[in-house]
Write a protein that binds this DNA or RNA. Sequence first.
DNA 1: ACTGTACGGTGAACGCCGTTCACAAGCAAC
DNA 2: GTTGCTTGTGAACGGCGTTCACCGTACAGT
Lengths: 252, 252
Amino acid sequence: MARRPPSDAVDEAAARPLWFAPPADDRDRRRTLTRERVVAEALTIISADGVDALSMRALATRLGVVPSALYRHVRNLEQLHDLVLDGVLAEVDRTLDQSLPWAERVRLLASRIRTVLEGRPGIAGLLKTRDPLGPHTLALAEAFLAALREAGLPGHETGLAFSLVYDYTLGFALSSPTSVNEQRVRDPATRKRLHAFLRSLPADRFPTLVGLGDSVWTDNSDERFTAGLDTIVDGLEAARRRHRRTKAPSSR
Amino acid sequence: MARRPPSDAVDEAAARPLWFAPPADDRDRRRTLTRERVVAEALTIISADGVDALSMRALATRLGVVPSALYRHVRNLEQLHDLVLDGVLAEVDRTLDQSLPWAERVRLLASRIRTVLEGRPGIAGLLKTRDPLGPHTLALAEAFLAALREAGLPGHETGLAFSLVYDYTLGFALSSPTSVNEQRVRDPATRKRLHAFLRSLPADRFPTLVGLGDSVWTDNSDERFTAGLDTIVDGLEAARRRHRRTKAPSSR
DNA sequence: ACTGTACGGTGAACGCCGTTCACAAGCAAC
DNA sequence: GTTGCTTGTGAACGGCGTTCACCGTACAGT
């Protein structure tokens, strides 16, 4: 009696710092279902068809198993999401040339996160609403903070800066074209209709909108992302200077 | 035959600029179902129990009607979401004292959006993934652009700046505590456990994370929001100066 | 070598969901 | 009064997450 439920690992914030129980032994691997296999298969589903295509039943079918079998390895869909999220974040390259200036390092990390997230349509939505404290999430935070610390801001402001950059990156990845609205956004005909629609707006009600014309709507999401990121980093740079001045008023 | 389906209104970008068909007459109001009543009831559900509690069936029950009846007034759940979103955005106060500097106006608008979105748990998620071009969404964009134009940036950069501020605000509202994780975040005991967990991290693997200590994690989301917003506005200010200098190098 | 037990997969079921479709009640116009 | 259109109804379909009793198998203890 009293069958032990699947472990918590990612779910429980107070879990043991021994996250990834070492693979132990590869004895009966390959024949029986494991949590790793479940999560891995979930990831391939998401990469292929987006996060909406990931369901317990579909996942079970792809693993050649009945849905209820999954619940031996994963507590529920929520926990599966958390595990998948940390698996995705594990794929973000955290290596950085330490000689690079802090701003560049921050930019690099943010760009890499975006790239990885955009390869898994819809996963940014999960990440923003669930925000698991898995090992790789923490490692990523560590990398960001290490770069930001060199900006010379006090600890509290460093945390705020991290939150800003991280939130921006996730938020951007979330609103970028996913599998759902992809064709709607990328389809040039639809885009033309949209531009025509915007041009047809009553100028008395939306003077700025029509006054600025098409140049307002940037379709290139790469440009939009880096431009926003640069502005944020500029703002952080300004804060850095401001703080440096009040702390050690050397010149002027 | 050939029953006319519910109109598109928000859904179709190429719809007539005649958005809100005037109420016409109040003859049979109150007895029969209308699109307005459906959307209004959906909004109260969301405000009370979050966006996850909004389902066609629950909505129908609250309206004293069978689920399929809703499809006479709304094409499907997606369109209902779009209509709800525009309804929410309609509640954002767009009036601004024109004598305020542009930066302050931008800050005001962003804060108001955040306030409204946080009153509807989970709705920011919809907004980011659907992004409807309804009348109030556009009016909000107009207000932002009007403020940003005074920063003196060229049209293209103004659009980028709008995208940045808007995305940041939505992204932040999305990750702020919703009905789902609310108690998990607000509960002081959980917060204590989280802090203890962070302190227990191995310092060799996360030197910055543990080095900065608790000061990194700001629980006050108001402070986090305004700090991020200020940084962004600072960055825009820097871009403004930069551009002004290259355009008209008056002093120095 | 035998036996008990716990693990991990099965099959059926529950209750929810969005959506469709044929049909009926009400109402307007001719 | 008949016609035809609008709008709500009832039943159904397929899909979802999740639970539960069941059972085979492999392994541990004696």
